[in-house]
Amino acid sequence: MTSNRVRVLSLVVEDDPGVLERVASQIRRRGINIQSLTVGPVGGGRSRMTVTVDAGHAEVDQVAKQVDKLIEVIEVHDITDDPIVSRELVVARVDVPEHARETFLSRLSSFGGRVVDALNGSLVVEVSAAPDQVEGFLSLLRPYGLSELARSGPVAMRKSAYGSSHK
């Protein structure tokens, strides 16, 4: 899924009602598709958003400037090309027959995944992985039905800290 058109924006915003709508609306206005968006409070009345968009570098550069202009947006960085730590949480339901269970569990643990719930052969499993490993994890699950799937979308952070945003 990842192509070189996909860019990752990391934002720090004021944790106010409506700020998500403002950010999403600004990106939508330029006709850019948001692939994933995660947001969570980071303390001090602020939230971090990680937005993955399907767009070229120049387009995203312009959108980032327009997003930065929003009053409640404190920082915007295009971190696509930076050394980053990026993780996505995947939660899935699979049906693993008794005889296949041992093999499945050992492969699951090789991904760092674990079983969080089990009922009548139906397992709910979770893994937190770098986005490029998520696809490999899903291909492990597919033979077992993969009857439900929930993905958080990536949350990301630059490995070294920024001084301040360009605003």
Binding site: D61, K65, Q66, K69, H166, K167
Partner: peptide, 8 residues
């Protein structure tokens, strides 16, 4: 005055 106008 508007940084986002640069190169728009």
């Amino acid at each position: 005055i508007d940084h986002s106008e640069m190169g728009k």
